[in-house]
């Protein structure tokens, strides 16, 4: 096992309202470690020294929960394609490397502490319409709705989004259109999602704008940083759905 000496420059920020700055740490790492395990080692040392460990979001550590969120050397989730931070392994780095670690940077994702940001904006976007309104029970047999395999596959391609926010972090404009596009497309691709498709896209776009995300200018950075490699074709699909819904006027729910 080859050990490597690393220099880490880590963003430290006590809380939402305080100013942050970079701090430098030296550490040893094995090539078999995951990136987060490397940080665990740094943190345990900090704790033993009576210092505050680096706070970062993480949970499943197998690339699916979407909690981990760091910009590593300028790339969200680090240099390896289609990989979340928790699945990034240290064999991608070499002895003597300096690694800069920053939180997601976006107005809509305020830093809570160190590398932890608040991604509640994503939840609020889903709240505004990212669902089908199927009440529990009283639904037809699963096989009564036939869905061509290609459509189901495309819906799945979009539905894979883990909501990590790397798309926003990567976008030069901090736009959330890949996230929103993926959910709009997932549901718009399926017959079950058709009924509410028009109000869904309108409401989700409105909420997205309200949260203070930037606008897509088609850089494609989101797609290449997405750990699930979700295609920007879904942004195009969202735009199409949105334009298709222009003539649709929503009736107030209060009129029921």
């Amino acid at each position: 096992m080859s050990d490597m000496n690393l220099t880490l420059k880590v963003w430290r920020q006590k809380s939402k309202d305080q100013k942050g700055c970079f701090e430098t740490y030296k550490t040893l790492a094995s090539e078999h470690m995951s990136f987060l395990e490397m940080l665990d080692v740094v943190n345990e040392k900090l704790e033993r020294d009576g210092k505050d460990p680096v706070a970062f979001d993480h949970d499943c550590r197998e690339g699916i929960c979407g909690a981990c969120s760091m910009v590593i050397n300028g790339s969200p989730h680090g240099p390896e394609k289609a990989t979340t931070t928790c699945q990034l392994h240290m064999r991608k780095f070499k002895d003597g490397d300096t690694i800069v670690i920053e939180p997601w940077r976006a107005k809509a994702f305020p830093v809570l502490k160190d590398l932890i940001v608040d991604r509640g904006a994503f939840d609020r976007i889903i709240q505004s319409g990212g669902y089908t309104s199927a009440a529990t029970g009283g639904v037809p047999d699963a096989n009564s709705i036939l869905i061509p395999k290609e459509r189901a596959d495309e819906a799945m391609d979009a539905a894979q989004c883990i909501g990590c926010g790397a798309c926003v972090a990567a976008c030069p404009n901090a736009s959330a259109m890949l996230f929103v596009g993926a959910k709009v497309s997932h549901l718009a691709n399926l017959p079950q999602g058709q009924v509410e498709a028009k109000t869904r896209v309108q409401n989700m776009v409105t909420q997205m704008d309200k949260e203070g995300f930037g606008n897509c200018t088609n850089h494609g950075e989101c797609e290449s940083s997405c750990p699930k490699e979700i295609s920007i074709k879904f942004i195009s699909k969202m735009n199409r759905e949105y334009l298709g819904a222009l003539s649709h006027v929503q009736k107030s729910a209060a009129a029921e």
């Binding site: 963003w11 790339s75 800069v100 940083s225």
Partner: peptide, 11 residues
């Protein structure tokens, strides 16, 4: 707040 370091992939 801008990144201290930012790599571009495809743009």
């Amino acid at each position: 707040v801008a990144y201290a370091k930012k790599e571009h992939q495809t743009t």
